[in-house]
């Protein structure tokens, strides 16, 4: 029996979890309320943790359990709570303002998924296990959707969530590759926390200076120190 190939439980569960992460990226784009966006992100973090843990079991790499634990603690619990507190303090319960309509951004999302499929499959042909290839496809899609979420949203907090979800995609891609050293993941995870802090600071700065979280107002200040 081929391990890690199509039709085995190892493959199916990994595929399912990856699909779940991707689905949450779609929901991020579909949500109009900040609360919904944060919830979707939290669920995505939890699914990512599950995917990492599953990969750890499949690859027999205990280091990935640590990654999973970090991902769960940071992405599914701490950051969402922090964001909720932030939202509460800023009084931002209104709908997220989108630069592009929800329907159009979802259509763009599907096109991006198609694009990443067309890129990853030929590039990785013959060099990796099917499991890793599917993982890479989904991971690239999640990264692209995270960027899309940052582009299509005007609100700083949902842009931050987009950035974090982009980073989720990176981790998903990293855990799928056999033999990726733990150091990289730990540093990436640390990077996220730093990013979150920076993002929080930025959000407060924008708020204090401009009295809004609508980043389109920054356009006028482009190039200023």
């Amino acid at each position: 029996m081929r391990v890690n190939s199509f039709g085995t439980p190892a493959y199916d569960v990994a595929h399912l979890l990856g699909g779940g992460v991707l689905l949450m990226s779609f929901l991020l784009l579909y949500q109009r309320r900040i609360g919904g966006v944060i919830n979707a992100f939290a669920v995505q973090g939890a699914l990512l943790a599950a995917a990492a843990a599953w990969q750890g079991w499949v690859q027999g790499a205990p280091g990935l359990y640590v990654t999973a634990a970090i991902a769960f603690a940071a992405k599914a619990v701490l950051i969402p709570i922090a964001l909720r507190v932030l939202v509460g303090r800023l009084g931002q319960h209104r709908a997220v303002e989108t630069a592009l309509g929800v329907g159009a951004s979802l259509l763009a999302a599907i096109l991006l998924v198609g694009l990443s499929v067309m890129v990853v499959l030929p590039v990785t042909a013959g060099s990796a296990t099917p499991l890793a290839r599917v993982d890479m496809t989904i991971a690239l899609s999640v990264v692209l959707l995270g960027m899309l979420a940052m582009i299509t949203r005007r609100n700083a907090i949902s842009q931050v969530v987009g950035l974090l979800s982009l980073e989720n995609g990176l981790i998903l891609g990293a855990v799928g590759v056999v033999g990726m050293p733990l150091v990289v993941e730990l540093s990436t995870a640390a990077l996220v926390l730093v990013l979150a802090v920076v993002a929080g600071v930025v959000v407060f700065q924008i708020r204090e200076r401009l009295d809004t979280l609508d980043t389109s107002i920054l356009d006028r200040h482009g190039g200023e120190a």
């Binding site: 190939s5 779609f26 329907g103 979802l106 599907i110 998924v113 290839r133 496809t137």
Partner: peptide, 26 residues
């Protein structure tokens, strides 16, 4: 409502694309 059902459609499309990917790897 069109948005709601449009998301359903796109998720269906996503499912089909992922299916093509996985059958391609089999």
């Amino acid at each position: 409502v069109p948005e709601f059902l449009g998301v359903a459609l796109l998720l269906g499309v996503l499912g089909a694309i992922l299916l093509f990917v996985s059958t391609r790897l089999a």
